[in-house]
Each structure stands twice: as C-alpha cells, then as structure tokens.
C-alpha cells in the first residue's frame, strides 16, 4: 500500500498523453488498488488497455497471483516469499559442483552459456551482476521443476520481469541503468520477485517445456487450424510449399513472442501483460 501511495505522485510527471496514463484511467487503477481486497477481474479488465508504467510492478505482481489481493496481507506475503527464494538459492545454487548430479551440472552449464546470450544487444544485460541474477533465477526454477528443467527460451521470459521490477528503483533510460547503484537488499528483492513471477507464469504452461514440448505442439496445431479456417488459400499455399508451421511458429510460443517484438517498449510490455497473464486464467 505504502508503495502505491508514494509512487502515485509520480503519475503527473510521467503522463505523456498515452492512453494508459490518461488521468481518468489512472484514477480507476488507483481506486481499485486502494481497496482492502481488490477484485482481480476488474484489475485484469483495466490492464487489458494498458498499465501506466509506474504501476506496472504492482499490477503484474497482483495479476500473476504472486502478491495477494488482500492489502493487509500483501507486504507480509512478499517479505516471506522473498526470504523463501533466498533459502532456495542457498540450498540449490550456492553449493559446490560435487554436490550436484551430472544432469544438474549439465543444466547449470546450459544456463551459464545462455545468460550472456540473453538480450545481448542491450548493454544493461551485459553487466555481470545482471547475468548472475538471471543464472540464479533460472537454475533455482529449473531445479524446482524437474519435469521440464531449464529449456532455452525460458531465459527470454525472465527479461520483462527484470526490467519492470527494476523500474521501481531506477531512473532514466534503461540502457544506462547500473545495477551497482542498488543496495544488495533491493537487488535481492527484485531477483526474488522475478523468480516468483516467472514461476507463476510458467505454472500454467509446464507442458510447453517437458519432453517433446506437447503444449507448444498443441498451440502450433491450433494456429495452423485457425489459419486454415480464416485464410484457406494461404493455408493451401503453405501446404503446397511444404512449409510446416513448426518451422516458424515454434519460437513464437517457446519465447512467448519476446523475440518477435521490439523489446522493452511499452507496447511489448503491454502485450506481455495482455496475452500471457490472462492465459494463466483461460488455460488453467
């Protein structure tokens, strides 16, 4: 609560005439957030048209089911979850390789290969501390989800969370952010929030990443059927050319379109929020 109160003052500074930051809309968000128990359905409907950037961290935590709707419990739950994450890291990540199985070592190596290759074109992500955070998040998630383990592309899914949750503490252009400007406590909180939001997001789509990735196969098939129904000539042409939907649409689902849109724009965040958070509800 105190968080919302203190940041709502910034609203007037950041209003740029964008629809998401219309004062009427901001009012609606603020009203909804100020209640003791907020209605997630209402919040989801509001969020569908976009969330003002400064409210995004709060809204995302709520919509993903990480922060509880009851405002009295909210801070307590977040504090507990953040400590729980730290315990997990200590238990699974901060141990010598001799205490890991061969499969776990292979997984950790794969994650270590992929972290420097995550958003490599944005300087911010090239900072060693950011990559280490990412590594801890991914490895801890992978260990706790042995049915799938880490699959390439999950690294991409963490990146919007990193940006959004850091935006609570950073100023100015993200390209120039330095993670070292933050206290260890804050870094740790942000990292924990990213971990839990990733977990919540993936809870609804575990079979996207298990053996043979049946969840993705199913969605690609659905997409193919959809194209066949709405544009038969295109569908026929693709058949004739021997073009398989898996050949181009697989990545769309595996990385939830993150590779396909211009990264780190308001549009991409809004899309992430629109498409994937309701997904949790629709498909669960």
């Amino acid at each position: 609560m105190s968080n919302i109160e203190s940041t709502s003052g910034d609203a007037h500074k950041t209003v740029m005439g964008a629809r998401a930051t219309d004062s009427a809309r901001v009012m609606k968000f603020t009203k909804e957030l100020s209640g003791q128990t907020l209605r997630l359905e209402t919040l989801r409907e509001l969020a569908w048209s976009g969330v003002p950037p400064y409210l995004r961290p709060t809204i995302w935590r709520l919509l993903l089911g990480y922060a509880p709707p009851n405002s009295d419990r909210r801070e307590g739950v977040l504090t507990r979850k953040r400590l729980e994450y730290l315990d997990c890291v200590a238990q699974y990540y901060d141990i010598p390789d001799t205490e890991r199985s061969d499969d776990e070592i292979t997984m950790l190596r794969q994650i270590a290969v992929d972290c420097p290759r995550t958003v490599p074109d944005v300087t911010f992500f090239q900072q060693l501390e950011v990559q280490k955070s990412l590594e801890r998040i991914l490895y801890t998630w992978a260990i706790r989800h042995p049915a799938s383990g880490y699959v390439q592309g999950i690294n991409d899914l963490v990146t919007p969370f990193i940006i959004v949750f850091l935006s609570e503490h950073m100023q100015g252009n993200m390209e120039n952010w330095s993670i070292l400007d933050l206290s260890t406590q804050k870094i740790s909180d942000v990292e924990a929030d990213c971990y839990w939001c990733l977990s919540k997001l993936l809870d609804g789509m575990q079979d996207h990443y298990t053996f043979a990735q049946p969840g993705i196969q199913r969605l690609v098939f659905k997409l193919k059927e959809l194209v066949r129904r709405i544009d038969e000539p295109v569908s026929r042409h693709m058949d004739e050319q021997g073009l398989d939907f898996l050949q181009f649409a697989f990545r769309w689902f595996n990385c939830l379109l993150i590779r396909e849109v211009c990264f780190l724009t308001n549009t991409s965040f809004r899309m992430y929020c629109m498409f994937h958070f309701p997904y949790l509800v629709v498909y669960k």
Partner: peptide, 10 residues
C-alpha cells in the same frame, strides 16, 4: 558477432 541469441527451434 558476439551478440547472437541462443537459437530456438531453427
């Protein structure tokens, strides 16, 4: 380039 992302699918 040093900046390739991991290839997904193909």
């Amino acid at each position: 380039s040093q900046q390739y992302k991991a290839t997904i699918g193909a």
